[in-house]
Amino acid sequence: MSKDIQVLTSQRGDIAVISIKGDVTATTGEVIGNAYHDAMVSSAPKILLQFDKDCYINSGGLASLIDIASEGRKKAQKIHAYGLSDHFQKIFRMVGLTRCIPIFTTEEAAIADF
């Protein structure tokens, strides 16, 4: 499978933003992992994962996100997410990922809760 994903990083104050558009899979998870390991992101105290509403996520992609959450916890980083479709919000809850990456319906809510 091609790496059908676009990942951009940016900074808003002390929040590092990772914007994700496309397929989040075992293959493309590496691209998100690389964005997380960007110096600016990996040292930020707060990380916001901004998903496009059309993002597709499979179990391989969930594993990549769990890796980021696990590493973030070791660094005492807070990681929030928003923009997921209703379906993938449900999937996050089913697998327990919301325990380590809380999800929000809006960017404002995600930032306000940091």
């Binding site: 179990s59 969930l62 594993a63 769990i66 890796d67 959450a69 696990s70 916890r73 999937i91 089913m94 697998v95 327990g96 990922l97 325990r99 380590c100």
Partner: peptide, 21 residues
């Protein structure tokens, strides 16, 4: 079991869990 020793979700093993749910 989908929760590891550290209280985090395990990395893999969600395929059948998701399908069945």
């Amino acid at each position: 079991k989908r929760v590891g020793e550290n209280g985090f979700p395990k990395r893999r093993g969600y395929g059948v869990f998701l399908i069945s749910n």
